[in-house]
Design a protein around this nucleic acid. Structure first.
Lengths: 205, 205
DNA sequence: CGAGCGCCACATACCCGGTATACATACTCG
DNA sequence: CGAGTATGTATACCGGGTATGTGGCGCTCG
C-alpha cells in the first residue's frame, strides 16, 4: 500500500498527471526504488476506482490530470496518523534463507553468511558514498531532505544487517561447540528431525 | 522469490505434501510470517510448471507428495551461493512515508516520527520477550536455532529503525534551525517546489 | 450419542506490486 | 536528415498476499 499512499500524498500538493508523479516520486526516493511508470497508471486507476482521486481534465497538451477527492484527503490523513505495523513486518528473504540454511543438512552456512556479509558491506559503502555526494551537492540550505533521510534509512538497515550476520556467526560457532562437547564422538541426532506435529510455538496475537 | 526457494529447501530434505510444508515453514519463521496455506499450493504448482519439482505419488491417505528434481537442486544451490541483492532492497513503507511527510506541507512530521517510535518500541519489546521465552524453552542443546535467528533479525532491524527515527528527529530540528537563521523573518521559500525538470540525481549502476 | 467445534488438507478467486513492452510524439545532436 | 533520447500513456503478465470455500476426521460436552 505504500505506492498508493505515496501518490496520494504527491497529489495532495495539487493536480498532477501520470508521468509527473513518477518524476516527483523518484526525486524523493531516488535511485533506490526506481518506480516503473506503468505502476503509476494502474495505481491511479485503482485510486480513481476507490474514489480517492478523480480526473481533473486535460491541459492543452493532452495530459490527463488527477486530483485528490475529499475522501482521498481523509485517507491520507489516516495514513500519516497511524504508524506502519511492525508486528508482522514484510518477509525478509535473507532471514528466510538463513533459517533454511541452518535447517537443511548439507549447506555451508558459514559460507552463506560470509558471502552475504561481503555483499552487504559493498552496499553500505555505496550508500555512504551517495550520502556524501548528497551532502556536498546540498551544501546550502537543506534542499533534498527526503532523499537524505531515505539514504540514511538504508544505511541504518544495512548496518543492522551486517551486525546481525556477525551475531549469527558467533551463535553458530557457539552452537557447534556445544554440540561437540555434548556428544564428543558422533552426535546423537545432528539434525534431529522434529516430528511434524511440533507446531504451535506461542503465537503473537 | 523467497517462498519459492524456501519450499524448495524444505523439499530438499525429502518428499513432502502441501500442508506439511506450511507446518515446517512456520516452525522456522514462526509467528512473524505466518504462511497462508493457499500460497503453498499455488507455489508448488509454479515450481512443478518450471520443472524444479515433480509429483511423487500419494500415500494411503491421499496426500499428494512432491519431490525436488535435479534442476530444482541446482536452483537451490544457486540460491544459497549468491547473496540476496541489497542494492535495490524492497520498498520500505516507513521510509516512503517520512519522505512524503517532509515534502508535502501541512503534515506534522514530528508527530509521525513519535507515533511510529512508540509503536516500534512496543514491537521491540514483544520480540525481546519472545526471545526470552525461546531461550528458556530451549535450555538444552539448540533445538530451534532457526527461529532464534529470525527473532534476532527482527530485533536488530527494529533497533535500527528506532535509531533511525531518533536520527530523523535530530535532523529535522537542525533543519528547522538552519531555516530560521537563514531567513529570520519569513523563510524565502519554505517548501521550495522544485521544477519538475529536476530529475536525474546520480543513479547507482 | 450426536451436534458442534476445531484441526487437517486442498483449492480457488481476487487484489496489489513489479516488470516488460508496445506505441506515439518531440527534441537534439552528429 | 536520421538516430537516439526524453516525454508520455497504456496494457499484459507474473509472483506474492489474503480471504474464502469445501470436505473429512476426531474430540468434547451437553
Amino acid at each position: 500500500m505504500s505506492i498508493r499512499h505515496g501518490l496520494l500524498a504527491l497529489l495532495d500538493q495539487g493536480p498532477r498527471y501520470g508521468y509527473q508523479l513518477r518524476t516527483e516520486f523518484e526525486a524523493r526516493t531516488g535511485a533506490t526504488w526506481p518506480l516503473n511508470v506503468g505502476q503509476v497508471y494502474t495505481t491511479l486507476g485503482r485510486l480513481e476506482r476507490d474514489g480517492l482521486v478523480e480526473a481533473a481534465g486535460e491541459d492543452d497538451e493532452g495530459h490527463q490530470f488527477y486530483a485528490v477527492t475529499h475522501e482521498g484527503r481523509a485517507e491520507l490523513r489516516r495514513w500519516f496518523d497511524t504508524p506502519v505495523p511492525r508486528t508482522n513486518p514484510p518477509r525478509d528473504e535473507l532471514a528466510i534463507k538463513l533459517a533454511m540454511a541452518v535447517t537443511v543438512p548439507g549447506v555451508d552456512v558459514a559460507a552463506v553468511v560470509h558471502g552475504q556479509r561481503r555483499h552487504s558491506m559493498q552496499a553500505l559503502q555505496d550508500y555512504t558514498r551517495l550520502k556524501g555526494r548528497a551532502l556536498a551537492a546540498d551544501s546550502g540550505s537543506g534542499g533534498d531532505l527526503a532523499w537524505l533521510l531515505v539514504l540514511e534509512q538504508l544505511i541504518f538497515q544495512t548496518e543492522a544487517e551486517i551486525r546481525w550476520l556477525d551475531h549469527c556467526e558467533a551463535r553458530l560457532a557457539q552452537h557447534a561447540e556445544r554440540a561437540a562437547t555434548a556428544a564428543p564422538s558422533g552426535p546423537a541426532a545432528p539434525t534431529a528431525r522434529r516430528a511434524v506435529k511440533s507446531r504451535d510455538r506461542g503465537r503473537t496475537r
